[in-house]
């Protein structure tokens, strides 16, 4: 299991380095590469689930924070950083078209925020589920 996660991570990291010079992508293209990673980690993987993504977004995962703590219950709305109070723009692409278009930025924030909320990296499946749900959120 941990080897699988490591493999997924290695792919994710390599992806980020390559894409640092790459042009902007669409959330759909991001989903395609996350799906490839998820399949690599688990050959039984079929498709991402928006429903799992929503559950993941709202869960505290055993700590103090959930994704919704800073990105609000409704990710089409602006949020606030839980400690500094600074405004955070909406996370849902329909409300903020810049989201999930810069692979380097996406990788950086998944790493940080998953660490803060789950005390570990997110798997490709968790990321893909989340993006799948965010793409269904309308402002």
């Amino acid at each position: 299991m941990s080897i699988r996660i490591l493999a997924a991570l290695a792919i994710a990291t390599a992806g980020a380095v390559v894409s640092s010079t790459a042009a902007a992508i669409s959330p759909a293209e991001l989903q395609t590469s996350l799906a490839a990673e998820a399949r690599q980690a688990d050959p039984a993987f079929r498709e991402f689930s928006a429903q799992r993504g929503e559950t993941f977004y709202r869960a505290k995962h055993g700590g103090d924070w959930s994704c919704s703590t800073c990105h609000t219950d409704n990710p089409a709305m602006p949020g606030n950083h839980a400690v500094t109070n600074k405004a955070v723009k909406p996370l849902a692409p329909a409300a903020n078209p810049d989201r999930f278009t810069n692979p380097e930025k996406v990788a950086k924030w998944f790493k940080r925020n998953c660490n803060d909320v789950l005390k570990r990296a997110c798997t490709a499946q968790e990321k893909g589920d989340l993006v799948a749900w965010l793409l269904t959120v309308k402002p």
Partner: peptide, 12 residues
């Protein structure tokens, strides 16, 4: 930066 006042602010 990875333990930045209670947040992960790590940078490449």
């Amino acid at each position: 930066l990875d333990k930045h006042y209670g947040a992960d602010a790590s940078l490449e």
